[in-house]
Design a protein around this nucleic acid. Structure first.
Lengths: 340, 340
DNA sequence: ACTTATCCGTTAAGCGCTTAATTACCCTAC
DNA sequence: GTAGGGTAATTAAGCGCTTAACGGATAAGT
């Protein structure tokens, strides 16, 4: 197996003294060749270090053996959250061993994302795609349906016939709220991500519902954009306004840590005077002092489940909606009883 | 452009009343067709929403129009550092607009990484690869040379004829050391990543050299594995041992933040009793209190430069060794004069 | 009026693989 | 002895595109 020359099935055929058709049948474990011949062919194949050309295979069977993921987040934010790397890590776990590869694209606007899907589809480069961060009336949904491009949504069900892998965020929101109320908190503010995301809306709705049920008239939702700057601004405003909350719940880790800085700056001690809860748990949450209580979601599991589902759908399986294991609240040192 | 039916050049040929060869020439802007015909063909092509099939093109011209990146880090660590997402973001920036896609693989052992490269090569799935985190006598170097697989190293030059994109870490190490010495520090310890990495060795060598020049007999290097646990362990040992250092320099952000926790736990105030410097700057460094002084490297720039170089090499350009802009020390609140 | 060059376009082979159709052969059954 | 039924192989078409080789037409040179 020296550089440059990659063996093809016709090399194998020549070496084995059979036709390329026979080689193809043998290597794909299909009937049409005798057992001894199959063995001989396979031996030769891996003595030669043969690997099928993906282009040739795609061209002839129409399969790309690849799936696509495009992440649409501005460069400024992308590196900040560990979310995507964990997701990718889960995706790879499910892909490992199989013939399928992952095509990744990072864009900074939604038009580019749509263009990417369209191009991949046109080039027949992917057999299906993963969709993350869905927004209300997401154009991607329409696009994949129009193109008949197999797709799996990472997030709650939006359209009945679109397969998805979702995590019960409502449950987690409720759990967090009940936990804070049990500690004695009554004035709780949720610092959410951008309204446009479906998951933001889901959590906000759950928050409002639970707050009503728990009879918390001061509970409310404010929005930021996941960045530490915006979070700091919003937090400062909320904490210095009238009837300041005693607990804040954030939609990611960066915003929560940022709030920790603001609290410090305002002379509010955490958790004695102010409790904080972060959403996705992370090293950041663990390492910061005080360590942040956080909701941990099975992110890698989501990625893996989504891949499995997508591969099934590509193979013609019906569009299921899969639920992952539930998120859990990891209490640390940023939550305590509110000041008396 | 309705789902399912993707136009091919022969559809275009039929619609334009010419041969597929003419269509190919027209669409690829090569001589052989008249200007009016070319226009007509191109019009029809994009009215039909034609996109070239990557498989067909690869098969016929031997190009995959894709490059590969495999990241070999255990799942536990991968999400922690923003490094890779920033890198990927830079890579995408350089790829955007072009016909080339990025194939990503995350593995958790070096054998799997080698296998990935070999498979991609065999499948003709990539035209070239990016190599990160080189180790001493890295088997990947030999592999890509044996396979004649175009490759660009992200890191310092190791083999003369292997193209690379590197950042002057020595400069940064020296700068950090001089900065600390200027503040009055004499006992400085570098908490490095795993010895096996070339970049670890480069920095350690630079550290030792600079320390000798600055006459710091107590300067030394200890190793951890980038994780917060290991860093905490090592830091604790170093700080409680004899002749404890007054300043620590870390090889990533997570370890530095972890040390912040240890210092806190030992009752050492940062920066008054202990100064800390992190390597790659990040949100973590910025958000933590006290905010960490850190060395900021042009990571996205590295990624982009590496892609451009790789594409050139694929096109037959000679193997250059490109230097990025220099890293810079961002002083924040974790460094100050040592205690008197 | 003849060759020569130029331009525009077609033809067909080939990239590496899959697979339906076909052939060759050996067995068994009547 | 021959029709019928497997099984084990070959053949060849086709996937969508590129490209060397070729050909017909028009323009220019002598």
């Amino acid at each position: 197996m020296v550089g440059g020359k990659r063996p093809t099935i016709s090399d194998i055929a020549k070496a084995a003294g059979v036709s390329t058709g026979a080689v193809s049948y043998a290597l794909n474990n299909r009937p049409g060749v005798s057992e001894p011949t199959r063995r001989r062919i396979m031996d030769i194949a891996d003595r030669l270090g043969w690997v099928p050309s993906s282009a040739a295979r795609s061209l002839s069977d129409g399969r790309a053996n690849a799936i696509g993921l495009v992440v649409d987040r501005p460069a400024r934010v992308i590196g900040v959250e560990p979310y995507f790397m964990q997701l990718i890590s889960g995706i790879q776990g499910a892909l490992a061993g199989g013939p399928t590869s992952l095509l990744l694209q990072v864009t900074d606007n939604s038009a580019a994302e749509l263009a990417a899907y369209r191009r991949w589809w046109g080039e027949r480069r992917v057999d299906g795609v993963l969709l993350v961060d869905l927004v209300q009336n997401d154009p991607r949904v329409e696009l994949v349906q129009e193109l008949r491009l197999p797709a799996v949504v990472l997030g709650e069900p939006v359209v009945p016939d679109l397969p998805c892998v979702w995590t019960d965020d409502e449950l987690a929101v409720t759990e967090v709220l009940e936990y804070l109320v049990a500690l004695g908190h009554r004035r709780i503010v949720r610092v959410a991500g951008p309204t446009k995301f479906v998951h933001t809306q889901t959590r906000s709705r759950a928050f409002t519902t639970a707050a009503a049920r728990l009879n918390l008239p001061d509970a409310r939702v404010v929005h930021a954009d996941y960045s530490d700057e915006a979070a700091a601004r919003v937090t400062r405003r909320v904490l210095t306004g009238g009837t300041a909350p005693t607990a804040l719940v954030f939609d990611n880790d960066v915003m929560a840590v940022s709030a920790l800085g603001v609290a410090h700056e305002l002379g509010l001690s955490v958790p004695d005077q102010l409790s904080l809860v972060a959403w996705d748990d992370s090293a950041l949450c663990r390492l910061v002092r005080p360590a942040l209580s956080a909701v941990r979601r099975p992110i890698a599991e989501r990625g893996a489940a989504a891949v499995r589902l997508l591969l099934d759908v590509i193979n013609g399986a019906p569009p299921e909606q899969v639920k992952t294991s539930d998120p859990e609240l990891v209490p640390r040192s940023s939550t305590a009883h509110p000041p008396a």
